[in-house]
Design a protein around this nucleic acid. Structure first.
Length: 311
DNA sequence: AATTGCATCAACCGCGAGCGG
DNA sequence: TCCGCTCGCGGTTGATGCAAT
């Protein structure tokens, strides 16, 4: 016995939306709102559509201020940055890109951005091929206690002088007094004060365990919830203290023992990421697979490891 | 001009979370 | 506490268009 369908499949229309259907839906929502019930909406609006379909259509195409078309380099960087650290959590990523929907970003990632990155570093390039930009090679990675950025699996990401979307984030020390002497914050933000950063790029520290995602009025997630700054728990995205370095790893099953196990493949303080190649990383992941995100397959592991080295 | 293969993206599907009764 | 309903999310599919042959 499967799950009961959300609607009567036989009586609902599927497939592409016609202009008439779009008009009906748009007019109804603009006049009455969603009423907080998408399931009942199509009937009220006179549409032979599943409620979920209506919701998707509205959120992705019909609601105001949706941005379609090419992604800017800045958006590319933000997407890459967030993907490296939080994985395929498109709704969160979309919340950082006003006007973009998670579906849009997901498609863009899967069809273009991923390939763009793959092109830079073919999968066949393995051992000792985790290259950094030449500028980084001229300036070897600093010790882990100084400015640095670890990607999803703890891979070192060079910090550059201009905002690339990959910079570390310096959270106000007041929020992290116990760990701030050599803290490497791994959320992205301008290296300058928060005041100089567009809200889109900020994660607002809310408390010791919470960050506020998204800017005020941001309404880019396809959920259409217009997250007026979305709160997410730090542990939700694998944020935990590790030997006084705050690491960010992708760990959906965090067991609150991150300071010991560093689930998700964090590197120790004394070992730089360059000591690892993709095989090592894969091994790290597989060795902790029981507590790691089950969705991460080998390909993704390789990909994400590479993305850590992009830019 | 016809066919084939590939890329894109809108839409669907199923699951988990959250909420109210 | 349990149960049912709805929402939101992320993965996947399929239709369409375009490029290559």
């Amino acid at each position: 016995m499967g799950r009961a369908p959300c609607c009567d499949k036989a009586s609902v229309k599927k497939g592409p939306w016609s202009p008439e259907e779009d008009t009906k839906l748009k007019e109804y929502i603009e006049k009455h709102g969603t009423g907080g019930n998408w399931i009942a909406l199509p009937q009220k609006a006179g549409l032979r559509r599943c409620g979920k379909s209506c919701r998707l259509r509205w959120l992705n195409y019909l609601r105001p201020n949706i941005k379609h078309g090419d992604f800017s380099d800045e958006e590319d960087r933000i997407i890459c940055s967030l993907y490296v650290n939080i994985g395929s959590r498109w709704s969160i990523i979309a919340a950082q890109l006003p006007g973009r929907t998670d579906n849009d970003i997901k498609n863009y990632w899967n069809t273009k951005l991923k390939k763009k990155l793959m092109g830079l570093l073919p999968l066949s390039h393995h051992r000792k091929q985790l290259s950094f930009p030449s500028s980084t090679l001229q300036n070897p990675p600093p010790s882990p206690s100084s400015h640095q950025l670890y990607g999803e699996y703890g891979t070192y990401i060079p910090v550059t002088t201009s905002f690339t979307g990959m910079e570390h984030l310096s959270l106000p020390s007041a929020n992290y007094e116990s760990t701030t002497t050599s803290v490497s914050q791994t959320f992205y933000q301008s290296q300058d004060s928060m005041a100089s950063v567009s809200p889109m790029q900020c994660y607002y520290p809310m408390s010791d365990s919470m960050l506020m995602f998204g800017s005020e009025g941001s309404c880019s997630s396809s959920d259409g919830s217009c997250t007026q700054g979305r709160e997410i728990k730090l542990e939700e995205i694998g944020y935990h203290s590790y030997n006084h370095n705050l690491m960010l790893s992708y760990n959906n099953n965090n067991t609150n023992d991150g300071d010991k196990s560093c689930v998700g493949g964090c590197f120790s303080q004394t070992q730089t990421a360059l000591d690892y190649d993709l095989e090592d990383i894969k091994q790290l992941i597989s060795s902790s697979s029981s507590s790691f995100n089950n969705n991460v397959d080998e390909n993704k592991t390789e990909e994400k490891a590479m993305y850590c080295c992009y830019y």
